[in-house]
Structure formats: structure tokens, C-alpha cells
Computed example of a mutant assay.
Amino acid sequence: MTPRYLSYGANPAGRVIAAAADVMALIIGLWILLFLLDANRSNAAVRFVHDAATWLAGWAQGIFTFDQDWARVVADYGLAAVVYLFIGHAIANRMHRY
């Protein structure tokens, strides 16, 4: 028996959009964490996460001009993550209504 909240009004496209927004925000959040923990940037995994996060948040780079690098990274990349979550879930919620 499927729970009612999973079967009622569930639009697969909305779930895909919400999941994509979550993954994009997760990648950006992972880069913020790696930056704050001063991860080794010559590591291939760290480089991959940095490149993916920079590509996803390229439009948000340079919006804030803090003196400290950590504050600039948190603000610029954090803004991009919040925007992806907000827009992705807003679109997914609209799709669930139809």
C-alpha cells in the first residue's frame, strides 16, 4: 500500500526538477565546506567540486565584495545555492498542482 502523500498529486517532472535543484545546491554547499576547511585544491575530487560549483555559481561571482576570502565565497556561492533551491522548488511545487 502506497502512502497517500506519495501518490496524491505527485508529478514526476516536478520531482526531477526539485532533485536537480537539490543536487546543484549540494555541490555548491560542498565547495563552500571544502573552502572553509582549506581542502587541498590539487586533489582531483576537490578540483572537480570547485569547477562544478564555479560553473553553477558563475553568475553570482563578484556580487559581494568582502575583504575576507571566506566571507566572499560563502556569500557568492551561498546566494547561488539559495537561488537554485528557491527557484527549483517553486517550479516543482507549481508542477505538482497540475
Results as ranks from 00 to 15, higher is better:
Y5W: 09
N11Y: 00
Y5S: 00
V82C: 13
L85E: 11
A18L: 04
W55I: 02
P3F: 08
V74D: 12
F35A: 13
R47T: 12
A81E: 04
G14T: 02
R15Q: 14
L56M: 03
I87Y: 07
P3T: 12
S42G: 15
A18E: 07
I17R: 02
V74N: 10
H50D: 11
G29S: 10
A45V: 15
L30I: 10
G88C: 07
G14Q: 01
H50L: 09
Y77D: 06
A18K: 06
Y5H: 04
N40P: 10
L37P: 00
D22G: 15
I27R: 03
D38G: 03
Y77K: 07
N43E: 13
V73A: 12
A90E: 09
F64K: 09
A45W: 15
R97C: 03
T54G: 00
V73F: 07
L6M: 10
A92N: 05
P3V: 09
S7L: 00
W31M: 06
D76Q: 12
Y98L: 07
V73L: 05
T2L: 12
A80V: 02
W31H: 07
L85R: 14
A80C: 08
L34I: 09
L37S: 07
A10F: 14
A45L: 15
R72G: 14
A21T: 01
Y5Q: 02
L34Q: 14
R94P: 03
A18M: 01
L6F: 05
A71Y: 12
P12C: 02
Y5K: 03
Q68V: 12
A81G: 04
I91C: 01
R47E: 13
A71V: 12
R15F: 15
A10D: 02
R94S: 05
T54K: 03
A21Y: 00
G58C: 01
G88F: 04
G9R: 09
L30Q: 07
Y84Q: 05
A53Y: 01
L56R: 00
F86P: 04
I63V: 11
S7D: 03
S42P: 07
I63N: 00
L37E: 06
I27F: 02
A20K: 01
L34A: 11
T2I: 08
F48Q: 11
I17T: 02
V83I: 15
R4F: 11
Y8P: 00
L26G: 10
Q68C: 07
V82Y: 14
I28A: 00
A90D: 08
V46G: 05
A52D: 01
A92R: 03
A92S: 09
V74F: 15
M95Y: 07
T65D: 13
G29W: 04
I63H: 10
G88Q: 10
V16E: 14
P12Y: 03
H50E: 13
A18C: 03
G14F: 00
V16C: 15
R47P: 00
G62F: 02
D38N: 09
L85T: 12
R94T: 12
L79Q: 11
L6I: 00
N93Q: 10
G88Y: 08
M1L: 05
I28L: 05
H89F: 10
A44T: 12
A57L: 02
N11M: 03
W70C: 11
L6H: 04
